[in-house]
Structure formats: C-alpha cells, structure tokens
Design a binder for these strands. Structure first.
Lengths: 323, 323
DNA sequence: AAAAGCAATTGAAACGATTCAACAAATTTA
DNA sequence: TAAATTTGTTGAATCGTTTCAATTGCTTTT
C-alpha cells in the first residue's frame, strides 16, 4: 500500500499527530523531532492524501474553471489571466471541459468555480452554489446570492462596430451570428438587431446569417449567401473573428474584394486577426484582463470581501484592412 | 452546514447505508425506497462530497494533464484529443498549469497523470508514480516502472525538413532554437546538429540562433542576426512555427524575400501557419492524434492492460510558400 | 410447524488526514 | 517546596462517504 502519515510517524517514532504538526510547520514541535519526521517522510517518499486532507479541512485551495471545450483560440488568453492571479494567491487552478458530469464542480472538489460552459445548466449551478462555494458566471444571466456575474459588454462592442461602419459610409450591413447556445453570440446578435432598427439601417432580414463560430461555418454560410443573393450588403459584422475569416475567404473566392466590395468586422481580436491578408478590423475583447478581473473577484469573495462589484471588461474597436 | 448523506437518509427515513446504495443504483434496494431517497436528495439539493467519496473508494475517476502554461497555440489540439478520449471512457480530465506545488498531482487527486511541464522535476515524478498512479511523460526521458513515455520523433521531423531543403538545393542552412528548458526544442536542435554534420552541410556555428519559442523572440533574434552578419544561410529551420513567423517578419523587414533570399521551415504546423503570407512550410505534428494515443494508453494502463507500447505519433512535412 | 432461503435494510468500521483536549515533563514563580 | 506555567507530545474524535457483515421480516421448502 501507499505510504500514509501513520507510516511516517512509526518510522520517526512519534505519534501521528506529532508527525502531522511537524510536517505542517506547527511551532510547538521541537526542531529535532521535526527533523526526524521530515527525514522519515522523505525516506518513504511520503505525499499526503489530498482527499483525506481536504475532507478534514473542508477546503481545497483550488479554483475551477469550467469551459465547454478547448477548441478555438479564444480561451488561451483568458486562461493566462486567470492562472496568473490564482497562483499568485496560493491557490491552484484546474481547468475542466466537461460536458455532462462536471464532478469537479458538483462534488465540491474546488473552493470556487468560474463558469464559461453552456453545457452546464443554470438549475444545476443553483443547487451547487453556496456560501462555501461561490460561482462566477461568464456566460449567462442568473440570479442567486452566491452566483456572481462577469459578463462582456457585447452591446457596447456592437455599437462601436456599427459606428465605425457608419462612419465609413455603410448603410446596408449584414450579420453573421454564431450558434444559439452562446450567450455572447446571442447578445451580440440582439444588440445588432436593436441598433439596426434604432438607426434605420437598411439591413434585410436575409442578410442575418447563422453559422456556428468556426472558420469553416463562416465560409460555408457566406458562400451560400453570395450564391443565392445577387444583392448583398456592403459590410458584415461577424460574431467572432473565426467566422469573419471564413467569410472573407468566401468573399474573395467569389471574386469580390474586401473591403472594397464588402467590408468585414470581426469580434474578439484573436491573435491571428492581425496577421491575415487583409488583416481583420475587429472589436477587441481584453481577454487576459477579463481573466485577471474575474480571478481577483473570486479571490476576494473567498476572502469574505463583499465583492458584488459588477465587472466591466473593456472593449475597443481595432481598425485594420478589412474595412 | 451543507447537506450530507445523513441528512438525506433522515429525510427519507432510512439508514445512511440504504441511502448510499439507493443513490448508487444498487439493485438490492426496493424501487419504492429508492424513489423516496432520490426524492429527498433532490429536495435538499444534495451532491455527494467528492473528497469523502474518493477517499473511501481510493479512486477519483479523474485524469490530470499537467502543462507548463496556457500560452501559445500548441496545446489546444493536443487537449482536444485527450479530452475526447478521456470522457468517452467515463473519466474526467483536469488540466493544471502549475509551476510549483502541483498538488493535484502530488496529493493524488487524479488516478493518472500526463506530463508536459518542464517545471516538474523528474525526481518528484519518481516519488509520485506508482501502481496506483501511472504517469505518461511527453517531455523527457525518464526511467521508472510506472512512468511511460510518449515522445515525439523530432529526429525524423528534422530529417524530413533537411531533406526537403536539400532537394530545393540548399546547402547552407541555419537553425533557430527555442528555450533550453524544452525537451522537444533541444532534441530538435541536437538532431539538426547531428544531420548537418552527417550530410556535410556548410552551416556555420553562428547561424544556429537561440530564441525562446515566441514570435517576438524569433523576430528579434533574426533581426539581430541579419544586422550583424552580411553573409547569411539560404534557409533556416525554426524549432517551432511561432519563431518561424517572427523570423519571416524580420527577414521581410530587412528587405529580403522569403523564400527567394531565405527559405524558412517551421515546426508543429499550428493553425495560423497556413493563413500567413507567405504560408509556412512546416513539419506537421499530429497533435490531436498524439493526444488521443496518449489518452488511450493511459486508460489501458489504468485498466491494467500491459501498455508499455511505445507511442509513435507521426510527423510529416507540409510544403507551402516559405520554401 | 420448524428449517431454510431470500429480499431489503442497517449499524459500524473503514479511508487518511487535522485538531482538540489531555497529559507529562521541565521550567518558572510564589 | 508547592503551585503554576510553559513546552512537547499524544490518543481519540472527526470530516462524509462506501461497504462488510449482521439483522430483520417474509416466503418457500421439508
């Protein structure tokens, strides 16, 4: 069997409690016996059993990030931001991309969770959230005393994109929406619809396309659209950069030019956006900053601070060659 | 306090053991009492305490992936591959990017671990690995009965890259190495040195540059090199695509052309490589496949199968515009 | 009608740590 | 010198599950 604290204690010739205190740096233990215990632990290659430890302490020193998958370039920077802050406060971060069980979350193997995963139902979140287990959601509206929100101001982003296109003289603007599962995607879409109406743009219903956030889907959707409609908008906004990429590829393939015939604005500012030809005008989401803010908030909540601060990550339009 | 199994049992008017059996689907329990228990659990919003559960069962149904950080586009596809396989076998995956404690690993909160993190010392790995906790390392040579290896055939990749350049008529070939921490980076470098000598290429010592895997470092290094040397190789191999990108940017900025003046071969085939101008010739690493193989191997090991199979992810040269 | 078998339920003993309260020995104080 | 305090050490209780072994009612068999 694996080495336990008892084995260490026996080898060091002390009680288990002494061994425990020694290893945890309790200062009541005499220096000489601490040495003995450390030596024994080392000799046996002892590592504590985390489950036992966490069970007893009812604390894991662990924060969980729950995302829907690792596909796509969006998560990396967000992750970096969260990671940096979390470890600098003595916690560790675990990232899970579960789509059904979410055991790490439901069985309370973390002390707090950050949620960006549409697979997890809000009802479940409500039964899991508690004083001892605060949640921060990045992907939904939800009302619960221990669930905090850190949502992107997608509305403002869309507004900026439209303003930019308007300034460039566009009146007829289309939209490429992502999958309906996504909170950000859908708020971007409805913000678009809202402002279109408010500012009397001439967008036709048929110019609101539906794709699924991938480059390929952006390509296919735009291709089909151009094949079936001889009239097309002078500009498109895509709900993310990957779809914008795909759309641009399709447009070019149909013999049209970006931005002369059709201008395209993306969303997120993924790394690749600046390297493409044409480079993509996009609404930059400060993903790393977002992650940092969320993590800071989580740590404050865990510290007991009253952190119902509503986070406002910033967004800005980055003008490039595609408009 | 939080709801425990005892609370559920009390509400359902049964013993704790009955409640436990009921929730775990033991068929000795009468259907009517199972219903009672489920109903009670539901009413209380009960979720089992994972630490207690895992402690008792000495099993976590959890596999850990330990990487050095979330920066860079390399990990995503690897992650996808691992994730898919792991969840399809009833396990869950946790990803940790720790750089000092690695508690998820050392405190045995996972049943098996996949290591791609140079921050974790081999000595530590040896004290952690055991029958109950198999390890697969992706980033080092290490000898231990419970540590399995799944290393990339970097040697072959370099060979292919050199062959390709040779076919294109290059004799004087430079190299851009990554940071010395990286196993893959260093094996790529030494394979390069080896074949250079074996095939009598005319590479000068000064044309072996040292960067750190980032685009920026590739750019800087190449910039400095071109500034200081009026003679330059007709081709470079970079230890990853990002450095290749940076190098190309520098080369173009110095008024030289890729591939006419200097050809560049990258390594990994990250998504962006095909979209750049010029698109990058690179040694493709089948990252998703690699991830799948590794995960399969881990699950086999956990199942007790004798899986000392040495994995051989494939590599192939993808020719594009940069050569 | 007693014996045997089965179905359903249960108390109690683990799992491996932490930590309280008790204690002994050594030291200080009165 | 007795009492009080300090310094180290320790057994035992606890965290919330799972699971063994025992127990209770019922049927069924002899």
């Amino acid at each position: 069997m694996l080495t336990t604290l008892k084995d260490v204690a026996k080898l060091a010739n002390v009680g288990v409690s002494t061994a425990s205190y020694a290893l945890n740096g309790n200062k009541l233990i005499k220096e000489s016996t601490r040495k003995k215990v450390l030596q024994a632990a080392n000799e046996l290659g002892y590592h504590p059993n985390g489950n036992a430890k966490n069970l007893k302490r009812s604390k894991n020193d662990m924060i969980g990030l729950f995302i829907s998958g690792f596909t796509g370039p969006f998560f990396n920077q967000l992750l970096e931001g969260i990671q940096d802050v979390v470890v600098s406060h003595g916690y560790e971060l675990v990232v899970c991309a579960s789509n059904e069980r979410h055991r790490m979350l439901t069985e309370r193997l973390v002390d707090g969770a950050i949620i960006l995963n549409y697979h997890i139902e809000s009802e479940l979140l409500k039964t899991v959230a508690s004083e001892k287990m605060p949640l921060i959601v990045l992907d939904r509206e939800i009302d619960h005393p221990h669930i905090y929100k850190a949502l992107l101001p997608n509305d403002k982003g869309i507004k900026q994109a439209l303003k930019h296109l308007e300034d460039k003289g566009h009146k007829d603007i289309g939209f490429i929406a992502g999958s309906t599962d996504s909170y950000d995607g859908e708020t971007r879409l409805s913000a678009f619809k809202h402002y279109i109406k408010e500012h009397n743009f001439t967008t036709e219903q048929s110019a609101i396309l539906r794709a699924d956030f991938t480059e390929a889907s952006g390509y296919e959707t735009m291709k089909t659209f151009l094949k079936n409609n001889h009239h097309y908008p002078t500009a498109f906004i895509a709900a993310n950069d990957e779809m914008a990429m795909g759309a641009i590829r399709a447009i070019k393939e149909e013999g049209l030019s970006v931005p002369t015939d059709i201008a395209v604005v993306g969303f997120d500012d993924i790394i690749i956006a600046q390297y493409l030809q044409p480079s993509i005008t996009t609404v930059r989401v400060h993903k790393k900053q977002w992650g940092e803010q969320v993590a800071e908030a989580m740590l404050n909540i865990l510290k007991g601070a009253n952190a119902d601060l509503i986070l406002q990550p910033t967004m800005e339009l980055i003008e490039r060659e595609s408009t």
